[in-house]
Design a protein around this nucleic acid. Sequence first.
RNA 1: GUCCCCGUCGUCUAGGGGUCGAGGACACCGGGUUUUCAUCCCGGCAACAGGGGUUCGAAUCCCCUCGGGGAUGCCA
Length: 480
Amino acid sequence: MRVRFAPSPTGYIHIGNVRTAIINYLIARKNGASLVLRIEDTDMERSTKESERSIMDDLTWLGIEWNEGPDVGGGCGPYRQSERFGIYNEYTERLLREGKAYHCYCTQQELDAMRQDAEKQNRTFTYPGKCRHLSTEEKQKFEAEGRKPTVRFHVPEGETVTIRDHIKGSVTFSSENIGGDFIIVRSDGTPIYNYIVIIDDALMKISHVIRGEDHLSNTPKQILVARALDLPVPEYAHLSLVLGPDRSKLSKRHGITSLNMYREEGYLPEALINYLGMLGWASESGDEIIPIKEIISQIDITNLAKSAAIFDFQKLKWMNGKHLRELPIGRATDLFAPFIARAGYDISSLDRKYLEQLVSVVQIKCDILSDIGRLAGIFLDDVPSPDSETEVMLTTEEGNIMLKAARELVSGEINENNFATDFIPRIKETTNLKGKKLFMPLRAMITGRLQGPELDQALPLIGYHRCKKRIDQYSAAYTR
RNA sequence: GUCCCCGUCGUCUAGGGGUCGAGGACACCGGGUUUUCAUCCCGGCAACAGGGGUUCGAAUCCCCUCGGGGAUGCCA
């Protein structure tokens, strides 16, 4: 078995393609197969090297490794389609020579007009084959006009193509319904996707093509090309699409759809793989949070869902939180640290031990790494400015009692040495508050928030001096 | 329009003729643990698109309708 992932480098990698990549990777690992990365950059207008770079970066970040590709090489290269034009040209020559393809001089405008006519008459547009039997004179006339021809594939009549798809089952198309002779080479000489995928899949010895369902309708065109060229046809598995909340194919307009945005917000590769791997697939046990290893051992090309799935942002977030909370403290600290820095704190001045303690106290509160941004200030700001709910809390009767009692303690019997152990018990005694009535105002007074880490764990990390400062300033601002 | 795919709680899904008066998860709502918000635990809400068959028996098989999606590009 050999599989491939073949992105088009026209932007950041999109969540839907990420899922295709993940499934290919998972299936490859399960079967000990090679994964080929092929860059489909025949659209010179839209393809960029930067996109190619970012796609490879993102895949690497996800932990997806390919065995062959433009960067690592392999026996079936080159792996960029733009570097394979010579190969395609030979096939095109052959099709032309054998009368299985022909030059077409119809212009964009002429084609648009035909298409509009068809639409007006409520018919399907099928290219009528106008240029199929042009005489030499006619061709010369067009050439003299400066027309640059495209190459069209001559679709054989009355042919039937049946795809045995591992996911969709048996799907049959008739050659009458694929829209007539289609263009395989643009007038600028560059070939078109539907023509060369099948060539590359054959040449790269791909045994199983696992790709999005949006390619299913075009598969018969590709198979017809393979037949004309005597090329082997791979096995197929067409993955159901990932949809946005409005049920249409997930795209930019649905908001956060490119992988690098998830990466920047602090999603974990293992959570993304877990979630995307389980969109359209379920584990035997029904467990939702499962390690990649386990997905690999259970997933199969035939047990993927046939129906499309809406991308549930909330569930991904929940799942990420689950993975995040299970992270060992060392790795968690490594991952969180850059996000603390990004929130504007100088982490180089903090020692590792302190950072680890901070992370371990706050880890449980986070679903994504960037959540630590709004929590870090609790430890690292001198006096965080309270939000409006907290201000209200500090102004209540309990809030005022709390502030007064704390102020007295902190400038009296409580000092640097007994702060961590004695402060909360003494506050409790002097205010005579307990439970929620004790902890909510206490939390407000110490952290400037109503939500946050466990106070008894946070206190020693914030330290006596900062707490005193906060108590003093909040007292001045909120007590009567 | 035409061709193709799909249709179980709001969402992701389990189920593949009887064990399903439909199970799990997210979300939501209650309750519990935690001297605190959260985590965690327990409970609740909520679905077989509709109609015909086949069968002793249908969520499961067949047909039609409806609904959704994709393709129909000198994009991939």
